[in-house]
Simulated assay, not measured.
Amino acid sequence: MHPVLARFLAADAARETLHKQQSGGALSAEEQAFTDAASANPKHKAVLLGVGGRTLSTDAQASLVLLAAHAAVRALDQDATLAEPTKKAREALAEEGASPEETDAFLASILLEEAFGYEQDVDAFDSEYVKEALGEVPALAALTKEAVDALFLTFVKGAANDAERKVREGMARALFDIAWSEGPAPINPEHMEAVLDAEVVDRPEEEQEAKVQATAQLLQALSKEGLIGPIRLSRLRALLGEDDA
């Protein structure tokens, strides 16, 4: 988990920083990142300031997570390792028409995935994974509906026979519909879980094996297109039970 995200997921630290800003106190770089994120999201700031105590409502918790994640995104610009890939990711999203708010939300989702998406130590920050995920953004941002259709057709046509072609078609359509229904985004564990629940769970064993194999092959194909990096590929394949991931 990014240290800025970790710090401001604590409601007391978040509120204290906002009160410190209001009183004109000097802010550290991390605190400035958080107050900037709060100023850019005034509704969430108001929700957070409007509650007291350590037990937060669902809305307040959501606001806290959003502000903490957006603060961490701002901190990426000052990170010696991640500043350049962050800049390139921002430029790629802007070139495809994303607003600054949409860009921040996209980048925040990457940091939240790193923090909570896998069974990793939440106290550690996997900078290499985030760097890779940021590097996936230009290819994802440039992905058009026509390009997705072409990926789909190429993958389906690569089947060895009609039975495999049918399985590939079903799994590719399911994954693309779930992961990219609102536009291309990094394929993450939630997408994989949804696909497996919809297409694999409670099916006959032979059908399960064929569908899992087709999904692993699809992930590999997307990796060759630069849409999935090697670390993400390994982790997603592991979710499928691929021992060589």
Rank of each mutant, 00 (worst) to 15 (best):
R165I: 07
P186T: 03
T154P: 03
R237A: 13
E207D: 13
E114Y: 01
P85I: 05
T17C: 08
L175Y: 05
A160S: 09
Y118W: 15
A71P: 02
D123R: 13
G170E: 12
W180M: 08
S39F: 01
K166C: 02
V148W: 01
H70A: 03
A105C: 00
K145T: 12
P230G: 08
L76S: 08
P85K: 09
V47F: 02
L56V: 12
A13F: 05
G229Y: 09
A46G: 05
T55I: 10
E193A: 13
R165Q: 14
S181R: 15
V51E: 09
F116D: 10
D244V: 04
L236T: 04
W180T: 06
T58L: 15
V156A: 07
A210C: 10
E206Q: 15
A60M: 09
T35I: 00
E209G: 13
L134A: 05
G24H: 10
L27D: 01
A185P: 02
R232I: 08
E190N: 14
D244R: 09
Q61P: 02
A163P: 03
K224P: 02
S223G: 14
R74E: 12
S181V: 12
L67I: 03
L175F: 06
L151G: 08
Q220D: 14
L140Y: 07
Q208S: 09
L239E: 02
F8M: 01
A62N: 13
T55V: 13
E209S: 15
Y118R: 03
D104P: 00
V195Y: 11
A13W: 03
V51S: 07
I110P: 00
T55W: 10
T17D: 00
E242Y: 13
N41K: 04
A163C: 06
R232P: 07
G97V: 02
P204F: 14
L76T: 02
A98V: 01
G52T: 06
A133T: 09
E31K: 06
L196F: 14
N41G: 01
T35P: 00
Q61D: 15
A147T: 12
L140N: 03
D12H: 07
L5A: 12
E190D: 13
D104C: 04
T35R: 00
E84K: 14
A29K: 07
E96W: 02
E169T: 06
S109A: 15
V200E: 07
V51P: 01
Q78R: 15
F176W: 04
G170Q: 09
A92G: 00
D149F: 09
H19M: 07
Q120C: 03
E128C: 00
A11V: 11
A194Y: 04
A210D: 05
L64K: 07
E199S: 14
Q22Y: 05
M171P: 04
K224N: 11
E16R: 08
F152G: 03
E164V: 05
D12V: 10
V195E: 08
K224I: 04
A179Y: 10
A6W: 11
A147S: 14
E225F: 07
A216Q: 13
K166E: 15
E31S: 01
G52S: 08
A13K: 05
D126W: 06
A60H: 14
A245C: 10
F155T: 04
A68I: 03
D59G: 08
L233A: 06
E84C: 00
L140K: 04
D126S: 11
P138A: 09
D121G: 07
E146A: 15
D36C: 04
F34D: 00
E169G: 05
F155Y: 12
A179W: 05
D77G: 12
L64C: 06
